[in-house]
């Protein structure tokens, strides 16, 4: 006999304080899967990440979560982001020493790869410089909001209180700051690798919303 999924979820939720998220995971499985597919643009990857999410739920130390459903979606969202970032790093490595345009024979210094540490340090210094510059060129309000939110780690309502503005005002500042960061980092190629691959509008056809014209 089939068990009603909601009853099963409630059973799990009652089984112990730590199982609340597990119950929610099952209860919202459909929405989470759909979200993962839409967010990653890849149905197979979405399934993998859905499994990863389960592992994360199990590994999570016990503790109160104010809104479990939102928490799960945030975790799912971060899984896609982490995957995109690791893919970007992998591609950056692959592309690092593309030499086919420069004939290799006359270049004794053409090595396949530099010391990974040096490379990583360079990349890090590059990022920090670029971000410093991007933040410095923000309008004052957006810069202050971003600084309070990301560097001083205040919540959005706290930022609103400190700046004496509304929450939606904070959101506007932060959205502007994010747009600005994106533009600056794209300009210097720091976001370019992943943006140009795997995320092309016409590459997949897996997204149900894609329309033919």
């Amino acid at each position: 006999m089939l068990t009603d999924p909601d009853d099963a979820a409630d059973d799990m939720a009652r089984a112990g304080p730590d199982n609340g998220l597990a119950a929610l995971y099952h209860r919202h499985a459909g929405e989470l899967r759909r979200f993962l597919a839409a967010r990653s643009g890849d149905a197979d990857l979405a399934e993998d990440l859905f499994q990863d999410l389960w592992i994360k739920v199990g590994a999570r130390p016990s503790g109160p979560v104010s809104d479990g459903r939102a928490y799960l979606f945030r975790m799912a969202n971060n899984l896609v982001l982490d995957h995109a970032r690791s893919r970007q790093r992998g591609m950056a490595r692959d592309r690092a020493w593309i030499d086919e345009e420069v004939p290799s024979s006359p270049l004794p210094e053409a090595r396949p790869d530099p010391a990974p540490d040096a490379e990583a340090q360079l990349a890090k210094a590059q990022e920090t410089l670029m971000l410093t510059r991007a933040m410095a060129s923000l309008p004052p309000g957006a810069r202050q909001a971003l600084h309070l939110y990301r560097l001083e780690e205040h919540s959005q309502p706290e930022v609103a209180k400190i700046m004496g503005i509304s929450l939606s005002g904070v959101e506007k500042h932060l959205a502007l700051a994010m747009k600005h960061l994106r533009a600056k980092l794209l300009d210097c190629g720091l976001l370019g690798a992943a943006a140009s691959e795997g995320a092309e509008p016409h590459s997949g056809g897996k997204t149900p919303g894609e329309q033919s014209s």
């Binding site: 990653s40 995109a84 970032r85 747009k179 960061l181």
Partner: peptide, 21 residues
């Protein structure tokens, strides 16, 4: 996100920029 793949692409760029920060 489901409306058009470009939404995903742009969102991903924003999220990765913030993650870099």
């Amino acid at each position: 996100l489901e409306e058009t793949p470009e939404h995903r692409t742009r969102y991903d760029e924003i999220a990765r920029a913030d993650a870099m920060l």
